[in-house]
Design a protein around this nucleic acid. Structure first.
Lengths: 154, 154
DNA sequence: GGTAGGCCTGTATAAGTATGCAACACATAT
DNA sequence: ATATGTGTTGCATACTTATACAGGCCTACC
């Protein structure tokens, strides 16, 4: 019963913009479904819809709400686990640290690094198998390198 | 004044989830920005943010027709427009400048930067949300940083 | 049977968001 | 200098959404 209503809601959203739960309620009523706004609030939560300019939208594609939601649900791996799983070697040059990983491992490792928010790391860039860490200076880069190397060798 | 606040809002959203406008208000207050919920409601409208499970999120997904259309319609956006649309913050270290953008914004911003062909920029590297500019030297990097920061804050 | 737990719902209301209005600041035009 | 237009803000409040609560309907298991 509920599941069927959720499907109809998806249909309605796909066919025309919906600006509010009360508008959705009226559109559903035209299709023979008669529920209150409260129920729709719960349905919207179940469907993990997001509301933006243009009304409610399905959590398809690469839109941010989905990503944010996914990040909330499953706890992302810790940096240590990441390095342990994907890291290959670490090298330093000037104020930069280059972290080599298995193919495809750079992005998740960089994400984990970003989550750490190390103050001496200005930013990270990830390719396919390489993460570049930009540090504030050479000394801090050296510290970061040591830290990462320790994680690798454990 | 407003534009700067909008940038801070983007930063706050990029760094941690925000569940309500009042929570956003408190986070901004910690950064010295003191406005009411009403103003934030208007800011959120200007930024075309959407709210879903996981709180408010930036409109970098391709699910918002208006944004997507605007980005694909005209000739490639100018660097200024790029920075204004996607840029979050700029920091300099040594001969490098790191430009943080919203997720997915780095590639187009880097392309726009390349088009500029600034003589003091030797090259650029783009990840998902970070652009690295390699400059000829520290002084030039500082100039570039200032230039980009100006674009951000206007 | 009867009881307990789970799920779904509407009601009432709390929580959150948008907006009309007036005040003010600043720019440009008269 | 005064007027006019544009833009921003806070306040108060209308509008919208979420939720505590209670009741109904199942099913499972004494």
């Amino acid at each position: 019963m509920t599941a069927q209503r959720l499907n109809v809601i998806r249909e309605v959203l796909a066919s025309s913009p919906v600006a509010s739960q009360d508008e959705l309620r009226r559109k559903l009523r035209r299709r023979g479904i008669h529920v209150t706004q409260a129920t729709l609030s719960r349905d919207i939560h179940k469907l993990r819809l997001s509301k933006g300019p243009g009304g409610y939208s399905l959590p398809n594609g690469h839109n941010v709400p989905t990503i944010a939601a996914a990040a909330e649900e499953d706890q992302p791996l810790s940096l240590g686990e990441m390095i342990d799983s994907f890291g290959l070697r670490v090298r330093q040059a000037m104020n930069q640290v280059v972290l080599s990983t298995v193919m495809g491992g750079a992005q998740p490792v960089a994400a984990a690094l970003d989550r750490e928010e190390w103050p001496e790391v200005v930013g990270t860039i990830a390719g396919d198998d390489t993460v570049l860490l930009i540090c504030t200076d050479s000394r801090h880069a050296s510290e970061v390198e040591t830290r990462l190397r320790t994680m690798l060798e454990v």
